[in-house]
Amino acid sequence: MSTGNNDFSHLKEEIISSERVFDGKVIKVDHSKVGLPDGGSADREIVYHKGAVALVAVEGEEMFFVRQYRVATDDFLLEIPAGKIEVGEAPDETAVKELKEEIGGVSEKLRKIYGFYVSPGFSNEYVHLYEAENMVIDEQSLDEDEFLDIVKIKLSDLTTRLEDGAFQDAKTVIAVQYVIAKFNL
C-alpha cells in the first residue's frame, strides 16, 4: 500500500526488549524483540557499527585499489581504499587518514559522493563514499595489523573487470560504477 504522502509510520517496528549479546571492538550485537505494524512480534538480531569511509582514488588514467585477505570471506579481495570511523572522528577526517594509510594518497579536496547502508536487514553500518580530487601519491602508512597490496587498474579496463567479477564487495562495485559513469567508459 502506498500512502503517497511520505508518511511511512504504518511500516515502523518498535523495539520491545533488547539484550546485548556481543560487545566487541568493532561491532556490538543485540538480540531484540520488536513489535510489528500488525500487532504481532518478531525477533531481530542487530549489528551496530560506527560506520566507515571508502574512497574513489583516480590518478591520470588509473584507479587505485587495494588487495587484502579477508578472514570473513576467506578470500583475497580487490577493494577501494576504506576504513572504519574511530570514536570521536568525523567521516571527513577518517577519509583523509585512510587515503594516506592505504595508498599514500594526499588529496587537495575530498568530496563526498554518496552514503549508503551496507546490509540494512541486520546492520546499521553506513559507508561514506568520497572522491579524492587532485590527488598525489606519497608513502603508505599502514596500521600495524594491516597487510595489503596497492593495485592500479586502467580506467579503460574497469567495465571489463566489473563484468568479469573482479570486484566482490558492494562499496567497490558502487565506486567502480560511479567512475564508469563519470568518465563515460
Rank of each mutant, 00 (worst) to 15 (best):
Q140M: 08
L155S: 07
I174L: 10
E79R: 11
F122A: 09
Y48Q: 06
G115P: 02
F22L: 12
S32C: 14
V96F: 12
G4R: 08
L185V: 13
Q68S: 15
F167K: 03
P120D: 02
Y126S: 07
E98C: 00
E144W: 07
Y48H: 08
F167E: 00
P37H: 14
K152P: 07
F65M: 14
V176G: 03
A95M: 03
S156P: 02
P91Y: 00
G40H: 04
N184C: 06
E131Y: 03
S32A: 12
K109H: 09
G115Y: 06
T94F: 03
L36H: 07
S41Q: 15
Y130P: 06
N5R: 14
S32I: 09
S17Q: 13
I16D: 12
I103C: 07
A170E: 14
I16Y: 15
S41R: 10
A132N: 01
R161T: 07
E101K: 01
I153R: 01
I15L: 13
E163I: 12
K28H: 10
D38F: 14
I174S: 06
K154C: 04
Y130H: 09
V176C: 04
E89V: 04
M63L: 02
L129M: 07
L185P: 05
L55E: 05
K112Q: 15
L99K: 02
E131N: 07
G104S: 08
V34K: 00
V176N: 01
E79V: 01
F147H: 12
L185F: 06
L155W: 08
V176W: 02
G60V: 03
E45C: 10
N124T: 11
L129F: 06
Y114S: 03
